[in-house]
Amino acid sequence: MKDEKQRQQLYTDEYFEKGHILLKIWQTIVAIFGWLCVFIPLVITITSFWAAYNPKIPHIWSYDEGIFEIKFIAVILLFSFAMASLFAVSMTLIQNRRRDRLVEQWPTFNPINQKKRENELGKFMDERFGPKDFRENVRYYEVQPEQNLDTDQIKSIYKKSNLDDLG
């Protein structure tokens, strides 16, 4: 049972295993530092932008260019979100219409006749070019002129077997 579990496990992480205290401490410090590098600039930017409208809010910087840049980025992001949403909604509607139109249509072939066609065609190919495993495994095969197929030969095989209808 244990051997089977080891085969099923596709990856390991020493952080979650017993022991490895120094590794856990180091990776935790790096993770905390990474999150601080995300949150500190975010807090500074939000408080500085908020302080432009409410001077009671403590802030680190108050440059007009910075406030204008934040507004500009917000407009760009809002426009991008609107375009992405418009695209996603329109593609969803188009795909749903297409799926409804195709799924509700009757199949254009009869699966039972399709299997019969495959069998008839397989028999014909076996007679004309040899057994299936020979055809699939031979490296080089030269087709003789009398083995060439006529333009409508497959259609005539289907007609002979009464399999020429589409449904």
Score class of each variant (00 low, 15 high):
residue 51 A to M: 05
residue 67 I to K: 08
residue 19 G to M: 00
residue 88 A to M: 10
residue 95 Q to R: 01
residue 108 T to S: 13
residue 4 E to T: 02
residue 123 K to Q: 15
residue 95 Q to I: 00
residue 52 A to M: 05
residue 84 A to R: 09
residue 7 R to D: 15
residue 81 F to Y: 13
residue 98 R to G: 14
residue 145 P to D: 05
residue 60 I to K: 11
residue 23 L to E: 09
residue 29 I to G: 02
residue 66 G to N: 04
residue 67 I to F: 08
residue 96 N to G: 07
residue 48 S to K: 00
residue 49 F to G: 05
residue 153 Q to R: 08
residue 138 V to H: 14
residue 123 K to M: 14
residue 53 Y to A: 11
residue 112 I to P: 03
residue 134 F to W: 09
residue 129 F to K: 01
residue 153 Q to D: 13
residue 10 L to A: 09
residue 140 Y to T: 14
residue 121 L to I: 11
residue 95 Q to V: 01
residue 163 L to H: 05
residue 63 Y to D: 15
residue 84 A to H: 13
residue 72 F to E: 04
residue 162 N to A: 06
residue 57 I to V: 13
residue 116 K to P: 04
residue 131 P to S: 10
residue 43 V to W: 02
residue 70 I to V: 07
residue 49 F to C: 02
residue 26 W to G: 05
residue 86 L to H: 14
residue 61 W to E: 03
residue 51 A to T: 06
residue 89 V to A: 09
residue 29 I to C: 08
residue 5 K to C: 15
residue 127 E to T: 05
residue 85 S to R: 10
residue 91 M to R: 01
residue 32 I to Y: 00
residue 150 D to A: 04
residue 73 I to F: 07
residue 88 A to Y: 12
residue 111 P to T: 01
residue 9 Q to A: 08
residue 164 D to W: 00
residue 40 I to C: 06
residue 167 G to Y: 04
residue 28 T to F: 02
residue 98 R to Y: 13
residue 43 V to G: 06
residue 53 Y to E: 11
residue 123 K to C: 12
residue 56 K to R: 10
residue 146 E to W: 03
residue 77 L to H: 04
residue 59 H to S: 12
residue 144 Q to E: 15
residue 134 F to P: 05
residue 66 G to L: 05
residue 34 G to H: 00
residue 13 D to S: 06
residue 89 V to K: 08
residue 124 F to A: 05
residue 14 E to R: 09
residue 146 E to C: 01
residue 122 G to W: 02
residue 9 Q to E: 14
residue 42 L to P: 06
residue 12 T to H: 05
residue 47 T to I: 03
residue 50 W to V: 12
residue 63 Y to H: 13
residue 86 L to Y: 14
residue 153 Q to K: 06
residue 121 L to P: 11
residue 119 N to W: 11
residue 64 D to A: 06
residue 155 K to I: 07
residue 110 N to I: 00
residue 167 G to M: 02
residue 24 K to R: 10
residue 93 L to P: 10
residue 120 E to I: 01
residue 86 L to W: 11
residue 19 G to T: 00
residue 126 D to G: 01
residue 159 K to R: 00
residue 103 V to P: 04
residue 87 F to L: 13
residue 60 I to S: 08
residue 111 P to H: 02
residue 167 G to K: 03
residue 32 I to K: 01
residue 17 E to I: 01
residue 18 K to M: 15
residue 108 T to N: 12
residue 64 D to S: 07
residue 116 K to C: 03
residue 90 S to F: 03
residue 147 Q to D: 07
residue 139 R to Q: 15
residue 59 H to P: 12
residue 135 R to A: 08
residue 127 E to S: 08
residue 115 K to T: 04
residue 17 E to K: 06
residue 134 F to E: 15
residue 5 K to H: 14
residue 58 P to W: 00
residue 108 T to Q: 12
residue 98 R to D: 15
residue 117 R to P: 04
residue 98 R to I: 13
residue 130 G to W: 02
residue 128 R to Q: 07
residue 29 I to L: 03
residue 31 A to L: 08
residue 123 K to I: 10
residue 70 I to C: 03
residue 61 W to P: 11
